[in-house]
Amino acid sequence: MLDYWTVGEDVSVRDAFGRILVHMAAERSDWVLLDADVAGGTGAKPLVTQYPDRVMQFGIAEQNMMAAAGGVADTGLIPVVSTFGAFGCMRAHEQFRTAIAYPERNAKLCCSHVGLDVGPDGASAQMLEDLATMRAIPGVVVISPADANEFMKAFPVILDHQGPVYMRIGRSPTPVVFAADHTFEIGKATRVREGSDVTVIATGVMVARALSAAETLAAEGVSVRVVNMATIKPIDMAEVIAAAVETKGIVTAEDHNIFGGLGSAVAECAAQHHPAKMKFVGVNDTFGKSGEHDELPAMFGIDAKAVYAACKELI
């Protein structure tokens, strides 16, 4: 029996990664985890401890690990490659493209240390470009779950999906948004708050911040719709179009560079089907810095206040 967390609790998605790995190891034997000496950091440690035979250790050699995943997939076994975002999505990007995505291998890449949510590790580890780099590769499903529960719902779904998937793993404690009865479907957004004035389309840690901003705005008489866009690619076009048609504008919110990620994906969709006024909440084309997860969002303009301000500007 899989235990889910309670809505409102602060939980690191890394804990969800460890929990679901152990659960799925007991459930099925058709996958293995590939690690590059960071299981302690990604949250995979419980699997290493409880199911050591399910882990292929590659040491600090991500390019080799990623290309080896292509070889593992050739045998029908599903490789779940796990490392930090900067190494999985940038250092080994070409290996992911050529050895996994191009041959349409059934391989999964789950990376922690994404966005500014890396805390004191600083800019070199702050992966602010992963949604852009992974989205640019043909045929790759890109997922950024909103919380620990949604991550646990999504993991079995990506194992069942035939083809390459990239999924983010959050690091810092983040409020749980979804209850245990939440269902996750690739390419399907979830409306987490109804509203008619403006829509915030958020992903990952920004969903909870968007809900908080919506609460503040409601007190001021502004009705904000909040959409959790957990799948960045393929994007839920119907939900984007509905926001464009039914509300006065769209604010996108992501812990990522404003270029190439969720905001760009939403804009591409809206521009083609129903142009809308938009504001982009994200890191404004700059590198990060060391700092705690509750200090950096304000500094880089990706906290609830930034979402609030963007909504005010739109209406």
Binding site: M56, A69, G70, G71, A73, L77
Partner: peptide
């Protein structure tokens, strides 16, 4: 990349 690939195949075969 090729040697990485055969490593992956060999490790999977061992598993």
């Amino acid at each position: 990349m090729g040697l990485s690939a055969v490593n992956g195949m060999a490790l999977a075969a061992r598993y």
